[in-house]
C-alpha cells in the first residue's frame, strides 16, 4: 500500500492542469486536492489545503509559499535552465509530461517522504531558494539574505534588495541549510536572531 499524497496543481493554463490531472489519475495514491491558476489563488489554496506535493509551472507570474510541500516543477523550458536557479525542488518535469517520467518523480516523492533528512542539504551562496516571503512567491538567492530572525514557529527574512517577510521555515531549518560560516546565532535566549557572521566575506 503506497502512502497517500495530496497534490495541488498550479498552472495558468486550464488545459495544462487538465493534462496533469489526467496523468495523475492512474496513480491511486495521489489525490488532486486543488488547482490554482495564479499566484493569489495558489497562496490561498496552499494555506487552505495544505498539500503534500505541488506541481508548479515555473512560468507562473513572477513573484512564491515556503510550503511544507514538495515542489515538482512542470514546464516546457529546458530542465537545465531551471536547475540553474532553483535547488529546493523535488523534481523537474518537462511538458508534455512523459507518464513514465512522472512515475519516477512520484517514486522519488515516496522515497523522500520516508527519509526526510536526505533532502536537507547545505545551500551554497549562489543557490536559489523558492520561498514564500509574506504573500509572494520569490526566488531568493542565498547570498542576498541579510538576516533571519525567529518569529514564533516561523522566521522573518530580510534580503539585501529590501525584501522582508515571514516564511514558514523555523530557525532550526535555516541553521540546517544555510552555509555554515554564513550565520551565527546571537541572543540565543531572546528570540534567537541570526545575522551574517564576520567571516562572511572570507
Amino acid at each position: 500500500m503506497k502512502k497517500p499524497f495530496k497534490a495541488l496543481i498550479i498552472d495558468d493554463e486550464r488545459l495544462a492542469r487538465k493534462d496533469m490531472i489526467s496523468l495523475l489519475s492512474v496513480h491511486e495514491n495521489i489525490t488532486v486536492c486543488g488547482e490554482a491558476d495564479d499566484v493569489p489563488s495558489a497562496v490561498k489554496a496552499i494555506e487552505k489545503l495544505n498539500p503534500d506535493v505541488i506541481f508548479l509551472d515555473i512560468q507562473m507570474p513572477g513573484d512564491s509559499t515556503d510550503v511544507d510541500a514538495h515542489i515538482i516543477f512542470v514546464t516546457a523550458y529546458d530542465e537545465y535552465a531551471i536547475r540553474a536557479f532553483e535547488v529546493n525542488a523535488l523534481d523537474y518535469l518537462l511538458k508534455p509530461v512523459n507518464p513514465d517520467r512522472l512515475a519516477k518523480a512520484l517514486e522519488k516523492l515516496e522515497f523522500q517522504e520516508q527519509d526526510l533528512p536526505e533532502r536537507i542539504r547545505k545551500l551554497n551562496y549562489d543557490d536559489r531558494l523558492f520561498l514564500m516571503v509574506g504573500r509572494h512567491f520569490k526566488f531568493l538567492k542565498v547570498d542576498t539574505i541579510l538576516g533571519v530572525s525567529a518569529a514564533g514557529d516561523y522566521s522573518e527574512v530580510l534580503t539585501s534588495d529590501g525584501n522582508k517577510g515571514l516564511t514558514h521555515k523555523s530557525m532550526k531549518e535555516w541553521e540546517a541549510r544555510l552555509p555554515a560560516q554564513y550565520f551565527i546565532r546571537v541572543h540565543r535566549s531572546s528570540g534567537s536572531t541570526a545575522q551574517p557572521s564576520s567571516t562572511w566575506n572570507s
Binding site: 493554463e13 487538465k18 493534462d19 489526467s22 523550458y77 518537462l94 511538458k95 508534455p96
Partner: peptide, 13 residues
C-alpha cells in the same frame, strides 16, 4: 521550443 511543447501539451489535453 517553448511554444512548440506548450502547444503539444494543450493538444494532448
Amino acid at each position: 521550443p517553448h511554444f512548440l511543447f506548450n502547444s503539444m501539451n494543450s493538444i494532448r489535453a
